[in-house]
Nucleic acid binder design. Structure first.
Lengths: 184, 184
DNA sequence: TAGTTTTGTAAGTGATTACTCACTTTTAGT
DNA sequence: ACTAAAAGTGAGTAATCACTTACAAAACTA
């Protein structure tokens, strides 16, 4: 990976997240990155190839996050870490994950990288087990609920990313998943 | 509203939902609707004007749904109806609401019609009150939780719209909001 | 150092796109 | 029936876009 290739990748990511894939011309990416437009096509073949490279990065980063959750010992810690995941994601690389989430609604990319991939299935499995260990009656459904909650939380974070709001919401959510709550 | 104007609106809605705003040329809309391309601009000035007209429809339809929820007598019925809202939306006019949700992530339209508008604020207020009546300790936060849940549910419905799945999920969610559950 | 591959550039190019314009047809008010 | 406004058409047009090509510089290999 040469310096300029990486620069193109980062610039494209930033611009795609800010303005969307279709509304960001390759000429703009080149200009912003300070390289010739042709270089984009030398390295990534297509505009779509550029996006695919970004998506591959996403896959890797997410896999790392999931790995760290799976490594936790306590089932409750795993669940809490999962709740915290979107906050962590956005605080670290906001634009990057924003792009990921917006892609869910684009037909073009829903078939490829967003289809439940390895790390997602692993996380679901691990969290199901965590619920089971905690004595929940319907662990599979609880996972689904948690997934929905996290999706919704991500949406909220995009629209209201204030520190205070995040803190409040997180602690409220965690209080819903505590040892002394009923498990029906 | 002439017949052809309405035809343009419906066709554009369908195509925008299927293929996205930016990747749907006005020429395609005209061809599919069986009208001349110029007519689109006569009626809606811009391609963006066409989208604005669609967004205005959305506002109206959503307002109707909210009104019917607000009209319910029992607080629990209001909450359950809110949970059912996304299912109702998607079963009735899938493409239409899909477009709405995808727009949340587009900068262009986030400032305009998607900003918490009248009906949304009213619904939040009413549901907050419902939680209060049911004796929940923190009704404001419960509403937020419910909003996130509904966002997440909408996401799920887009990816897995099978009847059985919807039915299961709905009844599970409703069971979480029952009179005999604790309200901490 | 000679030769080869890789990285980089600048200037196109054809296709597509949103939008315009000159014009005709239909509708509606009096 | 006359007329003015509104609805509708079809053939442009300028601009933009993804991508190509011919070529040069740099980096690697022997």
């Amino acid at each position: 990976m040469t310096e300029k290739k990486e620069l193109i990748l980062e610039t494209a990511l930033k611009l795609f997240a800010e303005r969307g894939f279709d509304t960001t011309p390759t000429s703009m990416i080149a200009k912003e990155a300070g390289v010739s437009e042709g270089l984009i096509f030398r390295h990534f073949t297509n505009k779509e190839g550029l996006m695919d490279a970004i998506l591959a990065m996403s896959e890797e980063r997410m896999a790392r996050h999931v790995k760290s959750i799976v490594a936790l010992a306590e089932p409750l810690a795993k669940i809490h870490a999962t709740i915290e995941l979107p906050v962590k994601l956005f605080s670290e690389e906001r634009e990057f994950w924003k792009l990921q989430f917006s892609l869910k609604w684009q037909k073009k990319y829903r078939g490829q990288s967003y289809r439940p991939s390895g790390y997602y299935l692993e996380l679901v499995e691990v969290i199901t087990d965590a619920f089971r260990q905690l004595g929940y009656a319907e662990p599979e459904k609880e996972v689904l609920l948690l997934v929905m909650l996290i999706d919704g939380l991500s949406n909220q974070l995009m629209q209201q990313p204030s520190e205070a709001f995040i803190e409040q919401t997180l602690s409220f959510l965690k209080s819903k998943y505590q040892l002394d709550k009923l498990k029906s």
